[in-house]
């Protein structure tokens, strides 16, 4: 089986005071095993909604959703999904080690096994010296790295990331992206990454899907041809720029159409 996430004809409609609001309609997406796919689109186009459906935090109105050939509820139950939220969402009363231990604790993994696993994961995100630190003692970038370590400690097949670096400054963000590429290369996981930063999307992904809004759907898809690890030369190459411009144009059109629809 080569497909990690399969979304077919997904529709989400919320009932609101102003009448039903269709957030997603006819949304199709396939993510292959060990693939890194980015979802970009204007704010409010339903990117997060897609992730929430995959993680069973939201019930689709209609359509089909398969995660490793399971429905989302079963996939969550089998702990196949890791989720990194927009904010780090660390528990402030737990130190770094205990935050990363949380998924193992909830899964009933014995402490003897769990602690070395959590420690190894913290080492991988480069925070070995900070195990006893509390979240408020860490910078935003470090907090987000703890959140990523927490999402990966159960070694889920699929990691969903919802603009994990949106709150970081440009320099830290670049740094985190490079780091994330390294981590991704050293694991077997599949990543679905939501962002509205085109450069970030291309830099990280095998494939970039551009969404339009109202209703949210995928309008354009680009395959990123650069092999990993990606060098600075590639990131400043003509080919990268062309790809970026194409995606930018698609994104611009999507946002423009949205504004037109709204007026």
């Amino acid at each position: 089986m080569n497909v990690a996430v399969e979304v077919r004809k997904l529709e989400i409609t919320f009932g609101s005071a102003a009448g039903p609001l269709t957030v997603l309609d006819d949304f199709d997406l396939t993510v292959k095993r060990n693939e890194f796919v980015s979802l970009i689109g204007p704010s409010g186009c339903g990117k997060t909604t897609v992730l929430r459906c995959i993680a069973d935090l939201l019930e689709p109105t209609s359509g089909q959703l398969l995660v490793n050939d399971l429905d989302p509820k079963a996939a969550v139950k089998q702990r196949q999904i890791g989720y990194v939220f927009q904010s780090a969402t660390l528990l402030e009363w737990r130190n770094v080690l205990k935050n990363v231990l949380l998924p193992l604790e909830l899964a009933g993994v014995r402490r003897k096994v769990a602690i070395p696993r959590a420690q190894a994961m913290i080492e991988r995100v480069g925070l070995t010296g900070f195990m006893k630190h509390y979240p408020r003692q860490l910078s935003g970038g470090m907090q987000q790295r703890v959140a990523i370590a927490r999402a990966m400690v159960m070694e889920p097949d699929i990691i969903l990331m919802d603009e994990p670096f949106a709150a970081l400054d440009e320099i830290t963000r670049d740094d985190m992206n490079q780091w994330l590429t390294e981590v991704f290369m050293s694991t077997e996981s599949t990543v679905l990454f939501v962002t509205h930063n085109i450069r970030e999307a291309i830099q990280l992904s095998d494939r970039v899907a551009v969404m339009a809004a109202r209703p949210g759907r995928i309008v354009e898809e680009y395959t990123v041809p650069f092999p990993r690890p990606r060098t600075a030369e590639q990131l400043f190459s003509e080919e990268f720029n062309v790809l970026r411009q194409q995606a930018e144009q698609a994104l611009y059109q999507a946002a423009h159409a949205m504004r037109k629809a709204a007026s």
Binding site: A55, D56, L57, V76, K77, R79, I81, G82, Y83, F85, S87, T89, L91, L102, P103, L106, A107
Partner: peptide, 13 residues
């Protein structure tokens, strides 16, 4: 926090 509740759901608590 609502997001923390979501986290616990995803972790199948």
């Amino acid at each position: 926090d609502r997001r923390e509740v979501d986290l616990f759901r995803v972790l199948s608590a």
